[in-house]
Nucleic acid binder design. Sequence first.
DNA 1: TCATTAAATTGTT
DNA 2: AACAATTTAATGA
Length: 224
Amino acid sequence: MQFRTSIELAAAWFPMLSPDQQARVERDTSVTQIAAGTTIERRGEPSQCWIGVISGLIKVSVGNADGKLASLTGVPAGGWIGEGSLLKREQRRYDVVALRDSVIARVPAVTFEWLLDNSIPFNRFLLQQLNERVAQFIGKAESDRLHDPDARVARCLAELFNPVLYPGMGMRLAITQEEIGYLARVSRQRVNQALHTLGERGLLRVEYGAVEVLDLRGLRHYGS
DNA sequence: TCATTAAATTGTT
DNA sequence: AACAATTTAATGA
């Protein structure tokens, strides 16, 4: 089955399961194709699924009670998101939106918990995933203090594009300057300024409601 | 299909 | 933070 191959390729934890565990995951998991710009999960909905990105790229907007964004992060192919809400049995506190045409897998909460109870390799994978996420936030906090706003914007964009890796190719990302601001922890006005600075250096091109990355390496190493 | 209006996003102070 | 300018989306003839 082609879905089986997809899950095996994208989920590092899948091959570690026992055959009967794999069988159950295959049975319970739904894999769907998502068009770019589609909202996969909406804030407030109690949808209890663990979401994995088989291919493409999605973004996760974490919001506070006011509906304003507190932070935003991209999830590349192979990444999984939502275990926090599952573990705490809460409502979703963020929007999940596909940035590119993507294929996502949904693992029901009961299956997720069953794996948690029965598979040590699965627990190990989760620990690693959580650890990396913490490291990512710590790294972001560090660069917040070390670099100027231009560099922060550049690195955040590079971080979003990092997983997709189209060397030299122009990639267009539908993201608002306000969103970039929350992502880079910079005011919207400063984002606007930074984008033009980066644009003048030929690293990207600013569009309405989007930016097109021209030089991913340049962005990643900007300011260092 | 085109013109008008509203909403969203951007650019500037 | 506030404002004007610009772009997109929606609506109706």
